[in-house]
Design a protein around this nucleic acid. Structure first.
Lengths: 133, 133
DNA sequence: TGGAGGGTTCCAGACGCGGGAAGGTTCTTG
DNA sequence: CAAGAACCTTCCCGCGTCTGGAACCCTCCA
């Protein structure tokens, strides 16, 4: 099938699929006209990649997951470890974002938000000591 | 002061400071030797930028915040709106990451993680229907 | 026959820097 | 006063993951 069909089947944009070929994640055949010719297996791999990416795995993790997927003698422990590391990274990222949000929320709550210039948000960013209320 | 001192005062790497000059966030003077010459005001702006960045504001938001900071006739409402939009973006990002983490955790829990190849994580990524337990 | 709607390659850009090369300047040490 | 360490400069490349666009080729249908 052509790249358009592979895109529709896998849910990935054609541009992304070409990129994935560039970096060696898929290796479709080529027809006599130079067009890529994707097998069902290729389309399936692309869909696999799409799902893994949507769970936030990096391209390199996807590459590893894909090779494990195609390795009949894999150990599920290897897959699990990748997933756990990724989960832990997500957990840390969430904590970081929540710290930001918390600080932001405090500043936002302190800002009256009218047409006067006084602004605790800017005060904080400018390094002013916390104002005594 | 030289860039090294500005870096130490602001907590930003010299590389970052040069980049900020490139994109017009700061405009230090130049000495006769071609070295940048930062005023205290410049260093203060850099520290402002560092704090805003650490709260996750984009460079363009930082640019706006900085111009509001330097605008004596600003309305605090303008600052607050930027902060609120940013907070909302963070909130959405957290929700997205939590959805990923939740899915990952389910898959991880279902994976026995030994040296056998059966793996619900790969099954899920490959698009297999949920297995009846 | 002509045009719409595929496909191809290649280059640039996005974000926010970091690394490193090649070279000039200034400070410190002996 | 000379040597060398420790600064500073500019420039270009690379990171990750695509996305947009230009210029061009191929196929199908009316």
């Amino acid at each position: 099938m052509n790249i358009g069909d592979a895109a529709e089947l896998s849910g990935l944009p054609a541009k992304t699929i070409r990129y994935y070929e560039d970096i060696g994640l898929v290796r479709p055949e080529r027809g006599g006209n130079g067009y890529r010719d994707f097998s069902k297996r290729d389309a399936h791999k692309l869909a696999f990649l799409g799902r893994a990416r949507s769970l936030g795995f990096s391209i390199e993790e996807c590459r590893t997951l894909l090779s494990l997927y195609e390795d009949r003698s894999r150990a599920s422990a290897d897959v699990k470890e990748i997933a756990e590391q990724h989960r832990d990274r997500i957990t840390r990222k969430i904590a970081e974002l929540e710290a930001m949000r918390s600080t932001l929320q405090t500043l936002i709550s302190d800002c009256h938000g009218d047409d006067r210039p006084d602004c605790p948000i800017l005060d904080d960013l400018s390094g002013a000591e916390t104002v005594i209320e």
